[in-house]
Computed example of a mutant assay.
Amino acid sequence: MNARKRTTTSLPLAQGNRKKHLLSGLIRCGCCGSNYTISGKDYYRCAGQKERGTCDNRLSVRKGPLEEASLTAIQHRLLTEDHVRLFIAEYEREATRLARIDSHEADTARIRLQQLERELGNLHENLLAGIASPALRQMIDERETEKARLILRNATVDRGVASQPPLPTPFVLQAQFRARIAALRTTLEDPAVRGQAASIMSRLIESVTIYPDEPGGPAAEVAASVASLMAYALNDNAAREGGVSSSIAVVAGAGFEPAAFRL
Rank of each mutant, 00 (worst) to 15 (best):
Q174N: 03
R180G: 01
K147Q: 11
D158R: 12
P165H: 12
E189S: 07
A183E: 12
R178F: 08
Q176N: 14
L184S: 13
V157C: 06
A179M: 14
A192F: 00
A182F: 12
P168L: 02
L188I: 01
T169V: 05
I200A: 04
L184M: 06
T187P: 07
T145Q: 09
P191K: 00
P165D: 08
R153K: 15
Q164N: 15
L173E: 05
P170V: 12
T186F: 08
P170Q: 06
D190H: 04
A183T: 12
R185C: 14
T169C: 04
V172N: 13
V161N: 02
L167M: 06
I200V: 13
E189N: 06
A162H: 11
N154V: 13
G160M: 04
Q164C: 05
Q176M: 15
A175G: 14
T169K: 05
R153E: 11
D190M: 09
V172D: 14
P168N: 05
R185M: 14
S163N: 15
R180L: 06
A162M: 02
L188T: 00
T169L: 03
L188N: 00
L150R: 04
F171R: 14
N154H: 06
P168G: 03
A148M: 10
S199D: 11
S199L: 09
P168A: 02
T145L: 10
R159Y: 13
D158P: 13
R178D: 03
F177P: 01
S199C: 07
N154A: 06
R185W: 11
F171P: 03
L167H: 08
V172Q: 13
I151N: 10
Q164L: 04
T186H: 05
G195T: 15
R153V: 08
L188W: 00
N154E: 14
P165F: 11
L173D: 05
R178P: 01
T145E: 14
A179E: 15
Q174L: 04
L150I: 10
P191C: 02
D190F: 10
R180C: 01
A179S: 13
A192G: 02
T145K: 11
F177C: 04
I181T: 09
V161M: 01
P166H: 12
S163V: 12
A197W: 03
A148R: 02
A183I: 09
R149N: 07
A192R: 01
A148K: 09
L167C: 04
A197H: 02
A192C: 07
P170S: 01
Q196A: 14
A179F: 09
V157I: 11
V172W: 15
L188M: 05
P170N: 05
Q164Y: 15
S199Q: 03
L150Y: 06
A197C: 10
M201G: 03
Q176G: 14
T169I: 04
L150W: 01
K147W: 15
M201S: 04
A183F: 09
V193H: 00
R194T: 01
V172R: 14
E146V: 04
I181F: 06
